[in-house]
Amino acid sequence: MAAEDEECELNDRQKEEIAKWFLLNSPAGEIQFVAKDLRSVLNNDKVYDDAVSYAFPLYNKSHLICLQFPNRSGDVLITSYNEVDENEFLDPRTAQVATVDHVKQVCTDVRPATDEELPSPYIEDFRCALDAEIARYVGEAYPKGVCSVFCVKGKDAELPGSDFEFVVVISAAKISPQNFCNGSWRSVWNIEFKDEEQVLEIRGKVQVGAHYFEEGNVQLDAKHECKDATIFQAPDDCAISITNIIRHHETEYLASLEASYSNLPDTTFKDLRRKLPVTRTLFPWHNTLQFSLTKDIQKELGIGK
């Protein structure tokens, strides 16, 4: 037994890998709970600390979490598109950079962004117009939605004639552990402004998750990708047409999610288990003799196998 245990014993590195896997696979809003359970399971602070400091930043960025500034003057989305450095994230709307504590999931400090960190005035015209339109749309469509528009390519262009790229991030989460229910909607839209072709190429990725865990564990995991395009126009017109495209695709996607749900009872779920047997009556447990009788008769008549 002792030898077997030794064989099973993992080294710290393997334990850390397992810990990271659990943390990164935490459902929306649940990484803190997972970390707490993990700490007691690991019973090894070094492994725990290493895993946590690796996994939290990745989780925060992939879940597009939103943190409030310490002075309550606004909030910042944690994404890979506005990462100034490991613990610093730019909020283009207020032109501030927030310092965050990834593990505590709080914003500890905020400073004005430097000129180098911000887009040129030419780019900012487009970004700012789009931000305003998207914010209006998100305000209408998502009761708890937050959004931001980041320039991820070509932010220093001063004049027309060069390409640039924006990312629109929309994140809405509802964390309600007292009701055993958490969920998140995350959309990321890449918009490439192609100067020469005078077109805007748009790619979207939407991911929706929900977890209900009162006396059970049920999760929704839905993903969708799409593409679209529109013409290069003045900043305000671009902002309106991009927002219309995003609104259109997200509305359609919501409708298709609802359709998937309404198809469940009668089609999809039926392929797993029917509500009633093919006979449409409950199984005749009181009279199972009939099955063996049928078999005997079949045997006698030579029609059974």
């Binding site: 009761p143 939605g145 969920g183």
Partner: peptide, 12 residues
């Protein structure tokens, strides 16, 4: 399943 659908409709 109903609860997860409800969640989606709360988010959006």
């Amino acid at each position: 399943f109903g609860k997860t659908k409800e969640m989606v409709c709360t988010l959006r």
